[in-house]
Computed example of a mutant assay.
Amino acid sequence: MFTGLVQQTGRIEGFSQTSGGALLEVHTGRLSEDISEGDSVSVSGVCLTAAKRSSSSWSFDVSSETLRLSNLREKGIGSEVNLELAMSASGRFGGHIVQGHIDGVGRLERTEKKGDFYEIWVSVSREISEMLLKKGSVSVEGISLTTASLKDAGFSCAVIPETWQRTNLKTLSVGSPVNIETDMIVRAVRKQLEVLTGTQDSGLTIEKLREMGF
């Protein structure tokens, strides 16, 4: 489990297709010493298992399902990625619960500088949009952010200067793909409501809840 507080950025040094997936090599810099084989590491929001170290880099096996749901396939050699080690049981919980299980890929629509702060707009699928709450938590590229406003197919977030400088957001351009993970608590509540209302197959909507008297 992670918290969405990025510790540093890394750099993709290699990407090669393997049987059933891919091998991703990331320059992990000073974090290399704190990683051991088998450790979980958040790479731009994707939970990956450290496989092998080479100097100040680590390689990670990436499954075909992870490649399908995330933007790792689209990131080129030299691309910056956000890195966070798994949270220890005694660690301080500073962000929100981030599993590293990506729901899908959004697109950076625009970035606006507002004084020392920044505002980003991200477009997402309807399925992801339905899982978002205003002033709720969302992980963008592994960064714990709070939604400022919502629309049918996207959302905006305010980004503080520290987060902007520490993460890969400053390197992205309009149209860049970004990994999105919605709040697991929202997902769990929605799932239970679908079970209780018998809408697992058809999907839960506001209209159906109203029909049932909610």
Rank of each mutant, 00 (worst) to 15 (best):
C47D: 02
W58F: 10
S56L: 04
F93G: 00
T167G: 13
F214K: 06
S19C: 01
L204G: 05
G4R: 12
R30I: 07
D39I: 03
A153C: 06
E109Y: 00
L204F: 03
G115L: 08
E33D: 03
G94Y: 00
A89Y: 00
L209R: 01
T199Y: 07
S16N: 11
F155P: 03
S129I: 10
Q192E: 14
T28N: 06
P161M: 09
M184V: 13
I206K: 03
V46H: 02
S149M: 08
F117I: 06
K208C: 08
G94F: 00
K151A: 00
C47Y: 09
K191Y: 12
K114G: 00
V124K: 01
L108C: 03
R68K: 15
P177M: 08
R210S: 10
K75Q: 14
E109G: 04
L85K: 09
S19T: 10
R53V: 04
I12C: 15
W58V: 03
T171V: 14
E65F: 11
S56H: 02
G106Y: 05
A89V: 11
T199M: 09
F155I: 08
G94K: 00
L5N: 13
L196V: 03
S59L: 14
S79V: 00
S56E: 07
T49R: 06
R68E: 15
V140W: 05
G45L: 09
R166S: 11
L150W: 03
V26T: 13
C157N: 06
L108R: 02
A51N: 09
F2M: 14
H101I: 03
A50Y: 00
I160D: 08
I206T: 02
E119H: 10
I97L: 12
V195W: 04
L193Q: 02
S176N: 13
G10E: 12
E25A: 14
A158G: 08
V6G: 09
Q200A: 09
W164L: 11
W58H: 00
V138H: 03
K191H: 12
V124E: 05
S54W: 13
L5V: 15
V189A: 09
E181Q: 15
Q165K: 07
T147K: 02
Q99A: 07
K191S: 14
S156N: 07
S70Q: 04
T163W: 01
G76P: 06
G29P: 10
K134G: 08
L83G: 11
V41K: 01
A86T: 09
L5K: 15
R166Q: 12
A86P: 09
F117P: 02
L83C: 06
S36G: 11
R210L: 15
G136Y: 08
R190I: 15
V140S: 03
T199R: 04
T66S: 15
T66D: 15
P161W: 11
F93L: 07
S40K: 03
T171S: 15
A22I: 10
L48P: 04
G94N: 05
C157T: 08
T49P: 05
S54Q: 14
E194F: 10
G38K: 03
G136C: 08
T3S: 12
G29E: 04
G4T: 13
G29F: 02
I206Y: 01
L85S: 01
D152N: 07
L172W: 10
V186L: 11
E74H: 11
S156Q: 07
A148M: 10
S59A: 14
G4P: 11
S137C: 02
Y118R: 12
Q17T: 09
G104R: 04
G10Q: 10
M184R: 06
E112T: 13
V186E: 04
G78Y: 02
